[in-house]
Design a protein around this nucleic acid. Sequence first.
DNA 1: CCGGATATTGACCAGGCGTTCAATGTATTA
DNA 2: TAATACATTGAACGCCTGGTCAATATCCGG
Lengths: 167, 167
Amino acid sequence: MPGKKASEETRREQIVAAAYAVAARTGIDGLTVRAVAERAGLSHGLVHFHFESRNRLVGALLERVLALTSVLEVSADVAGIPGTLDRFHALLRREMERLSQAPAAVRLFLEFWALGTRDPAVRARISEALEGYRAAFRVLTAEVLRAEPAAFAGVTPDGLAAVAVSF
Amino acid sequence: MPGKKASEETRREQIVAAAYAVAARTGIDGLTVRAVAERAGLSHGLVHFHFESRNRLVGALLERVLALTSVLEVSADVAGIPGTLDRFHALLRREMERLSQAPAAVRLFLEFWALGTRDPAVRARISEALEGYRAAFRVLTAEVLRAEPAAFAGVTPDGLAAVAVSF
DNA sequence: CCGGATATTGACCAGGCGTTCAATGTATTA
DNA sequence: TAATACATTGAACGCCTGGTCAATATCCGG
């Protein structure tokens, strides 16, 4: 049963999607190369062809999870809201809603966090991603403080960003 | 190299302690019967003699982790503090300190929580333990509210307990 | 239509896992 | 001391894992 050829990018995307589905059900430790291959309808050898090792695949999965949980998305409809404070509140609400609608991603993030306590590379990548997330928030909170100084007397941008990021 | 005999309780305690040490380093999924046995200086066969299966051992480990994280301990020195509110604050501080000094236990608790999303038995046991913890807190918060109604006008015991338990 | 490049398959390997169990050691009792 | 009960060991089993690789299928440019 020979499978058709596909482009590098298509296959990688397909395999990572399968890895996400498998990990959401079995956890990161339960993620096996063979289970991912079966889910994607491919042979396990092919997974090793596109991802040199299981570790690389887990790394790609981490990137997907981070993109789903720790990338600040300023969508067009939110960006169009007039009023600095209203816009900020809408963004916060959007973030909360986005996370609450992807519980699997949040759970996997927690699993990766736990993994990071044992794996320095994972820990470093998560720290970096969170730092970026925090920095993006800091830009917005600084803007809010500039526009509405009265509403947050005595609050620093960093302080507000920390509270906002901790949900 | 024949090992000496030991009482049922001694051996079980010894094995669970080894399991805790191993899991703290490698995570729950990395916990193998052989690693636990080696850590305890015993043969892996003996672990199966005292714990019918790996699952039972993990269950015993969960009990230990819950005891370290989710059992409200009202120590004598705290119980002796006069003043309901002061006593409550001291207890809160003690709980925070206790948890911050056992990061491995907290991490393992999180790992078990993630495991519980896949394992109904684990989820049920954790829910039960947290319910007990919450109930113990509720007793104390009710007492605080009775003694100092002015300080918490409009706050219900359940509400205060929920906030206190969420740390 | 042919030939080189590459994507895909599946058999195979070594190693680690949980579990079983016959053999052997140690403690206890008569 | 002899007999009984029980704790302990380590070899063995079947299974699954991540990884390798020769064979094969597919695609694409000449």
